[in-house]
């Protein structure tokens, strides 16, 4: 939308009616998935092997395991671990990142710690967590969160450094309270950085959660994949993986995208 000028006769804004849903992009995605499935089916037919089952076999395993309640149970456990680790990493990482971004002396002192923790391999953190704290849920979730926190710190620190001081000055002149300042001035400016940290965070975290489950838990998708690896049951491995990916896709479409859409609507209307 173009900007209005002083001379324009100002028409009242009536909220636009939601236009009919555009199915084009969804159809494209569906077609893309169908093509992938067909290519997989063809490849499996050309190279028949227990190590490379066709998609229908995988689907059959998915349905069977879902009906037995196995997939929902293990998927639920893994999702809980992902959610807990994600929340911990985002909250702790954001708090530290905002603090370091606004306190340069503390940042100079703690920067080597951040670089160090960024470069510690995930596997080392997991193994050490299990040795130091035992094979328990706290160690598992803590190890996953610890792996992600440095990335969140770095992203949010950059975001805080880029805060526009003119808005800060305006908020001081008009005596915004601390909560109003955070909600209306700071967080909207950090939103793109928070979105970037969350996006990369969720994909990294669920992969690390699987490793944590494989190494030291007795349930969850990672544990099941390890089990079927020992049985050389590739169809079950793929069934669990696909089920998890589908859930993550649903979360992306039903939760992440609508949230992002709502928080950036001012930007779209302004262009």
């Amino acid at each position: 939308m173009g900007s209005l000028s002083l001379g324009t006769s100002s028409q009242g804004r009536t909220e636009k009616a939601v236009p009919g849903r555009n199915w084009g992009p969804l159809l494209t995605i569906a077609a893309s998935i169908v093509v992938l499935a067909v290519a997989w089916q063809l490849a499996a037919a050309l190279w028949p092997s227990r190590a490379f089952p066709p998609p229908l076999d995988v689907l059959r395993v998915m349905v069977r395991e879902t009906a037995k309640g196995e997939i929902p149970y293990h998927l639920g456990i893994t999702l809980c671990r992902v959610a807990a680790s994600f929340l911990l990493a985002i909250v702790i990482g954001s708090a530290i990142g905002i603090f370091l971004g606004s306190h340069p002396r503390a940042d100079r002192f703690l920067d080597p710690w951040v670089i160090l923790s960024l470069n510690v391999p995930a596997l080392v953190v997991i193994v050490l967590a299990y040795i130091w704290f035992g094979l328990n849920e706290v160690a598992a979730i803590g190890a996953v969160a610890f792996n992600k926190i440095p990335n969140v710190i770095v992203t949010m620190r950059e975001g805080t450094r880029a805060l526009d001081l003119r808005y800060t000055d305006m908020a001081r002149v008009y005596k915004f309270g601390p909560f109003a300042r955070l909600r209306h001035v700071v967080l909207p400016q950090l939103q793109p950085y928070l979105a970037a940290a969350s996006r990369s965070g969720i994909s990294l975290i669920w992969k690390i959660v699987l490793v944590v489950e494989l190494l030291g838990r007795s349930n969850g998708v990672g544990f099941q994949i390890n089990l079927y690896f020992q049985l050389f049951d590739v169809a079950s491995i793929l069934a669990y993986t696909l089920a998890f990916v589908c859930v993550m896709l649903l979360i992306e479409i039903l939760l992440v995208q609508p949230l992002e859409h709502a928080s950036t609507r001012w930007r779209r209307r302004a262009t």
């Binding site: 939308m1 900007s3 209005l4 100002s10 009242g12 804004r13 930007r267 209307r269 302004a270 262009t271």
Partner: peptide, 11 residues
């Protein structure tokens, strides 16, 4: 009539 507008929509 511009109360519901965002600043980016204004001249």
């Amino acid at each position: 009539k511009l109360r519901a507008f965002y600043p980016g929509e204004l001249s």
